[in-house]
Structure formats: C-alpha cells, structure tokens
Amino acid sequence: MSRALSAAVLGVIYAFLLLPLVAVVAASLTAGELMRVPPEGLSLKWFQRFLASETFREALLLSLQVALTTVVVTVVLATLAALCHRALSRRLAASFRLAMTLPLLLPELLTAIGLLFFLNSIGLGKTLTGLQVAHVVIAFPFAFLAIVAALEQVDPAMEEASASLGAGGFETFRRVLLPLARPGMLTGGLFAFIVSFDMFTISLLLKPVGGNTLPLALFDFLTYDFDPTAAAAATLSVLFAVIGVVAIERMVGLRRAF
C-alpha cells in the first residue's frame, strides 16, 4: 500500500516536471499551423522554419557564443575562487562563500539594474562585452559551489602529503587538486552553460544594440506570432541541455559530478 502510494507521489512529481516539456516537444512536431497539444500530424517543418529564419539563427549563434565564453571564463574564475576558499580558515571561508554566492541571493532584476549602471559608467553599456560580463556574474555562483563541493571531498592531508614529497604549490595544484576538482569543474561548467543559455532578465536589460539572444528572440517572436516555430526553438534549447548532461555523465558519471 505504502509502496503504491509512494509510486503514485513520484508519478505526480515526474508528471509535474515533465509534462510541460512533453507538451512543448509535441507541439513543435505538429504538421498543422497552430501551437497545440496534441499535434495535428507529425512533421519537422517548424524546425526547418526556425533554422530558415535569420533572426532565430543569429540569436541561436549569439546565445551559443555567449554561453560557451561564459563557461570558460566562469570555470577558470570559480576554480581560482574555490582554491582560495579551501585555503582560508573556517570562519573566513564562510564569509568568502557568502560573498561569492551573492549574485545567487540577490533578485536577478536588482543585479541587472546594478550592472546596467555599472557597465554604462565604464563605457560597456549595450555592448556584447557588457552582456558577457553580466552572464559570468550570474553563472559564477553555480560553478563556484560545484567546485567547492568537489574540493570538499578532498582530504586536507592531500596537500600536506604532496608537499612532504617535495611538491611546491603549483605542482600540487597540477598533479593533485586539479585532477580531483575536475568533476566539479565539469558540473560547474554545465551549470554555467545552462544558466547563460536560458538567461532572460539580465539579457533583456543589457543586450547589445542589434543583438538578440535566443530567449529574447523567442520573446519578441511570441509578442506578435503564435506559430509552432517557438515550440521548435524551445525544444532545441532543451536538447542542448540534455546533450550537456549526457556528455558529463559519459565523462565523469553524474554521481561523481554532484
């Protein structure tokens, strides 16, 4: 009885999480002219339509470019910050951690407005570089926490063992800490990618002149149209995230990455 109940609860939770996704994917595959579930016949024409649209193509490429840059910059910065966090005393580490995760704790809109003023005042307002900076700021806490979690699994005696065997700081980083932090860096990178690829509020306020990321292009499109191209775009975003997760699973195994 209780087994059946817990299975039912689990089923409801999965349905709650996955049904919208199923609906969007189903809608994107329709052969009809309207976004609706169930779809009227099956076809890939809305994906074709999506890729044929120059607006969407450019937006997709910009989103990918920004997301990949965000991944690289964020993972490097977050790794450095996580190493610093490890070296600090317990009390200082707690404050440091709080400071590093502030972008996560503040409302995104607040961060966006702050960044808008800041970037404008240093001359980076409405530029791609400005947008890029903003994405890194928002994605950073996710990568930082993932790498800190990975490093917390590492016995503090590792550095001492390495030093007693003659290795200096950099040598210890290269031979011991970096390999042991790698699962966290991959997870953090994946988070950074997804956060950046899906970012809306920040991008809306800080987007460069004439440049649209995919979520913004989708928003513009949905303001005037309601055909399944939007569903196709959404399906593609989900696909990118799934590819990322599968890649991490293949490389390190999700169990080790989290």
Binding site: D155, A157, M158, E160, A161, S162, A163, S164, L165, G166, A167, G168, E171, R175, V176, P179, L180
Partner: peptide, 30 residues
C-alpha cells in the same frame, strides 16, 4: 617541500586518482 622529510599519515593520505605505482613515484616525478 624543502625539508626532505617523509611523512606517513594516519589515514594514509594516498592520492585517490593515482595508481599504486604513480603514488609511490610521485616524489620522484616532482
């Protein structure tokens, strides 16, 4: 790292990502 003192730890502190050979060879590689 400049004292040349070998240390054996209570919990062994072996490098988990390195094989037995690589663990022992660590100080020589450095």
């Amino acid at each position: 790292q400049r004292r040349d003192f070998g240390v054996v730890f209570q919990n062994y502190a072996l490098f988990p990502h390195l094989t037995v050979f690589e663990n022992v060879a660590y100080g020589l590689g450095v």
